[in-house]
Amino acid sequence: MSRAALLVLADGRFPAGGHAHSGGAEAAVKAGRITDAATLEEFCRGRLHTAGLVAGALAAAAALGADPGELDAAADARTPSPALRTAARRLGRQLLRAARSTWPSSELDALAREFPKGAHQPVVLGLAARAAGLGPEDAAHCAAYESVSGPATATVRLLSLDPFDATGALARLAPELDRVADRAVAAARRVRAEGADALPAASGPLLEVGAEWHAAWPVRLFAS
């Protein structure tokens, strides 16, 4: 296992399409739910414990070698918003392209054949971690971190927020993020015996509602 490989995969500049997505922050800013660093931190906390936990568990399960098709169906079942399912598949397809080029692997090639238009991003992330020689803890941490780093960087652009304040919010969430990743991995380890139903199914209704609202805007900065 390589710690440096984790840095490559988790790098915000890893070219997998995430820069065009706000993780729900654009809708939350427009709705007045994110107005400053404090409300950004609360938004991220909510996302971490819902979408972040689910994504972390899916990624950890994929890293452990669970069937990607079953995990993708589980992700669908946990994502009520069609717009979010589309965004997750699009990001999954983009991550798969980057990962196949970065860490060539027969498992990633097989995933590309099975899902030519993309599997859910956390599933791809878990398999990418596996291809990079990383474990389920790494995959869960990556997914959970992405669930908050995306909205934080997007909010810097959307509100011209002080970037130091946004980064400080992420740092304060770090201990919680570790615990969410632990829970995600614990759930993922049960998948082999119990199937994908063992994965958490937390969701943030406002994230789902906001995503549908956002997808209908004619003018927006971010794709989701």
Binding site: G17, H19, A20, S22, Q94, L95, R97, L221, F222, A223
Partner: peptide
């Protein structure tokens, strides 16, 4: 293609959406 407030990123640093 939607570019997330960074048009140069989408054509240079992270080209995945355009490749798709």
């Amino acid at each position: 293609v939607e570019t997330g407030a960074c048009p140069h990123t989408a054509i240079r640093d992270d080209i995945s959406a355009n490749l798709e």
